[in-house]
Simulated assay, not measured.
Amino acid sequence: MSQKSTSCQYIFSDVQQPNLPLINGKDVSCIFDGNQQVVAVNHVNFGIEEGKITAIIGESGSGKSTLLRLIYGLAEPATGEVRYRGWLVPTRKDKLIPGHDAMKLVSQGFDDLNQYAKVWDNVASQLPNTDLDRKRNKTQDVLAKLRIDHLAQKRVADLSGGEKQRVAICRALINDPEVLLMDEPFNQVDAAFRDDLQQDIQQIVLDTGLTVVLVSHDPAEVLAMADYLVVMKNGHIVDQGDPTDLYYRPQNPYTARLLAKSNVLTADQASDLGIESDGLVSIHQEAIQFKEVENGRFWVKESRFRGMFTEIILGNDKLDLHVVQFPAKTIKKNTRIDILVSSVHYFESKS
């Protein structure tokens, strides 16, 4: 890993704050001025631990990519501060070339790649020529770790999106950063190869102690590989914690919908299922079963074949429930049914 960085050389008045997570945000906001002022990040607090994979997840426009830029120092906080190892993260006003020295950012567009140079040259160019043997060995090693050493002599322009993503990650890792930041890293990776890339990144974290912070809108990605989740909506952090906890015990209905496509019901709708509640509840799709009953109080509204499973929408005049049926079966629309719910999550009442 690279030498531990401080902000002293950029922010002379800074004093290190002890006992903080590796990356710590306190009351952080970011505002974009234009025809209309946009609050992209709104007074958020967060902590990112060392040697872990942290995922920032949310819908488009939630502020997740802006938060990543704040962590790296590409954006200036309007309020609050971001600290790395207890030191302020320098921003554009502090550095001629923005971006924290201990971090590397892999963006969505592969802007840093030379499309008409070979893969080897794209990666090796990040190292100086003062030790050619080390440069050669280091380049070979990082290409092998990301399983693209067989592409070394190919032009980047001739690669698939997934292969380009691996080259971009190799370029970022070649100088042993302490933190790797990735903005939607799997967007251009085919589903068939996504798992392999996720496993490679997880293995690098285990082998080196690298800290990874990634932005995603896809729950399948983050639930599979993240150690910690930060859930954003409209510039706010609405939930954060262990992925399993947030999946089964979210604090916010938005988290339930985002991570599990959960059915969020009002107290009135829940009572129609025999569930008593003072506020909102969520029911995961896999927690709902049904059986055909001639005079059932509910009925099948829609059935959508999804391959291994069928997505079924059922309910009555008051509610729609999305259900996963596995293995996939055919059921006719308007079939009368009774509904069985195996588990319910209750949200705290705001009253």
Rank of each mutant, 00 (worst) to 15 (best):
Q126W: 05
I97L: 09
A191N: 04
Y10L: 02
Y72F: 12
A191G: 00
I174F: 03
T79L: 05
S62D: 00
K318C: 11
G161H: 14
K291L: 08
S62I: 05
Y84M: 06
D183Q: 02
V293H: 06
G274E: 11
P77A: 02
E76W: 07
D272N: 15
Q36Y: 14
E286C: 07
K233D: 12
G307Y: 03
M225V: 14
S351F: 13
P327H: 07
R136W: 14
A55C: 10
D141C: 13
D200F: 06
V212K: 01
G61K: 07
I97A: 04
L127Q: 08
P253R: 11
T330I: 07
S342T: 15
Q269V: 12
L246T: 05
I313F: 09
A224K: 06
L206W: 08
N187C: 09
F12H: 14
A267P: 13
F46D: 07
A267G: 15
G315D: 02
S29G: 04
N263K: 07
V281E: 12
H150K: 15
A256Y: 00
A124G: 00
F290M: 09
V38N: 15
I169A: 03
I31V: 12
L210G: 11
L258F: 08
P77D: 05
L132H: 06
D218P: 04
G235S: 01
I283M: 04
T79A: 05
V82K: 05
L151H: 14
L314W: 01
V222G: 02
R249S: 13
I331H: 08
Q240C: 03
G63Y: 10
E286K: 10
D320I: 11
P90K: 02
L273V: 09
K261C: 10
A260R: 06
P243I: 06
V106D: 08
E163F: 10
I237A: 01
C170R: 08
E81N: 13
R69L: 15
F110H: 13
F32G: 10
V215D: 08
D111P: 00
T54R: 05
T211R: 00
V89G: 06
S303L: 02
P253Q: 08
E302T: 04
S62R: 00
K4A: 11
G99T: 11
A172R: 11
D112Y: 00
E76G: 04
Y346D: 07
N234C: 02
